[in-house]
């Protein structure tokens, strides 16, 4: 088995496994601990406040969108490209089809190309902001830079591979390594927010809601 096959086969399985398994464990731990130590969540459970809290932040209809429109717009562009591009990239779709004979809608290559650039551009905005804004720098740790790099690396290498800059095979190997690395670190770092966002918004929405106070 060569390096490509290793990354395309067992290591891909492993990284999906760690990613999914890790998130399931995190959720399970949250539920188990919260039943003992966070009883107000269950005592004041409210589907209404749960949904209102999530909806107001998953679409930018909230106080922060008004107060910080630029960060909000860049943040939304960043995340849309981050999530949509890899899922709906034609080349990824082909791989899914090869393995499982499943397929779904995909982006045109041109659009995907632009979205990759947007993701990288927004990532660079966050990088610069992190380095220059004193109130962001003060809370920044090395992990924040590493995670931003780990998030952007699959996009940068993917872009280079598509345009066949440098040695295609090497770039593609790097792309796969970074992509799988990103999946693996998600459950163990702040990137777990992709799922915990919903949990946190829900509990805070209900906590504010039980006092009839909106959290947006």
């Amino acid at each position: 088995m060569n390096l490509y096959e290793l990354l395309r086969g067992p290591l891909l399985w492993l990284s999906f496994g760690v990613f999914l398994g890790g998130m399931v464990v995190r959720l399970a731990l949250f539920v188990a601990t919260s039943r003992k130590k966070d009883k107000p969540i269950y005592r004041f459970w409210s589907w209404k406040w749960l949904w209102l809290s999530i909806v107001h932040w998953i679409v930018p209809v909230n106080v922060t969108a008004k107060k910080n429109p630029i960060v909000t717009i860049v943040g939304f562009l960043f995340h849309i490209c981050l999530l949509v591009t890899p899922l709906f990239l034609l080349a990824h779709g082909v791989l899914w089809y090869e393995s499982w004979e499943i397929s779904w809608w995909s982006l045109s290559e041109k659009v995907a190309d632009y979205m990759t650039l947007v993701a990288i551009g927004c990532g660079l905005f966050f990088l610069v902001r992190r380095m220059v804004a004193p109130h962001v720098r003060v809370i920044t740790t090395a992990a924040d830079y590493v995670l931003l790099a780990v998030t952007l690396a699959p996009f940068v290498t993917g872009y280079l591979a598509y345009h066949q800059y440098f040695d295609y095979y090497t770039v593609m190997i790097l792309h796969m390594i970074f992509g799988e690395l990103m999946l693996v670190v998600i459950p163990f770092t702040k990137l777990s927010h992709f799922l915990m966002f919903f949990v946190s918004r829900a509990v805070t929405g209900m906590e504010f809601g039980r006092r009839d106070a909106p959290s947006w």
């Binding site: 731990l29 949250f30 539920v31 188990a32 601990t33 919260s34 130590k37 966070d38 969540i41 922060t64 107060k67 910080n68 960060v71 943040g75 902001r129 992190r130 804004a133 109130h135 962001v136 809370i139 920044t140 740790t141 924040d144 702040k190 777990s192 927010h193 915990m196 966002f197 949990v199 946190s200 509990v203």
Partner: peptide, 21 residues
Amino acid sequence: MSARLKMWLEMCAHCGLCADT
């Protein structure tokens, strides 16, 4: 250390949007 506190301490994106509030 409740489930919520642990989650919050770990998930903060260090985005700085809370500063001037």
